Computed example of a mutant assay.
Amino acid sequence: MGKRIDVQDLNVYYGDFKAVEDVTMTVEPRSVTAFIGPSGCGKSTFLRTLNRMHEVIPGGRVEGKVLLDDQDLYANGVDPVGVRRTVGMVFQRPNPFPTMSIGDNVTAGLRLNGMKNKKELTERTERALRGANLWEEVKDRLDKPGAGLSGGQQQRLCIARAIAVQPQVLLMDEPCSALDPISTLAIEDLVHELKEDYTIVIVTHNMQQAARVSDKTAFFNLAATGKPGRLVEMDDTTTIFNNPKVKATEDYISGRFG
């Protein structure tokens, strides 16, 4: 599990507006890559292109290539639903399905894909919850509403839901922004464990978090309001934080702007 992502000359649009311009990068398999940069520079927009969520937005379109182990996700005939099964996503705010139990939240994607075998569903539920470090906390109340969990538990439930369908890549869009410090630490510890099996890309505004959890860091910026976001620099996280090649990267990390 865990696939390599190669992005080539990617431009992202909302209608006629170019939101992200000319991004080329490689995300290594079974690693954590952090996207950092000021608000409005296209980090989350670009993240959504990696599993074709961007085109769900009216007017959203992409030019360029996103290769997952050499398969172009935007090639003719590629099923976007299949892409989203392979490249899972965890959003900024925990979003468990409010009318579903904890167990049903985990298996929602499996059932949608046609899995009906109760024994297999039960096994996959436990495996996913263990993978999200949540099993011991919820194993005796799987029939209780997922929305009744704490914020940090809800986010781990959403991670369990994402990994239950066994994706190859896990995208995380500011997964800790709505959480308290203790829950944030739990998610960060989980990210470290998950990268043994998954390729992980995380958008974060928290510089310390990027430094703690990621192997590579990509810095995005924009020339001015209304201009497209661009990838300024990408390197090993220690290099980006200690010896960046571009002055704008150093200025952002040191808090001079952003």
Rank of each mutant, 00 (worst) to 15 (best):
L149N: 04
A164W: 00
L142A: 14
A162I: 02
C176Y: 10
I163R: 00
G148E: 15
Q166M: 03
K144W: 13
R156L: 06
V165H: 01
G152P: 02
Q154N: 06
V169Y: 13
G148P: 01
L171W: 08
G151C: 12
E174P: 03
Q168I: 00
I159V: 03
C158T: 05
D173G: 05
I163A: 02
G148Q: 14
C176K: 07
M172Q: 12
P145Q: 14
Q154A: 08
L157E: 11
G152W: 14
G152T: 09
V169G: 07
A164M: 01
R161T: 02
C176W: 07
G148L: 07
Q155Y: 12
A160Q: 05
K144E: 15
L157R: 09
R156G: 01
M172W: 14
D173M: 11
A147Q: 13
Q155D: 14
C176M: 09
D173T: 05
K144T: 14
Q166L: 01
C176F: 08
D173K: 11
A162L: 11
R156W: 13
E174R: 11
P175S: 09
P167G: 07
G148N: 08
L157F: 10
P145T: 06
G151H: 13
I159G: 02
I159D: 01
R156S: 07
L170M: 13
D143Q: 07
P175I: 02
S150L: 09
L171F: 06
C176D: 09
L171S: 05
G146N: 12
S150P: 04
Q154F: 11
Q166V: 00
A147W: 07
L149F: 12
L149E: 11
L157Q: 10
P167C: 08
P145L: 11
L171C: 06
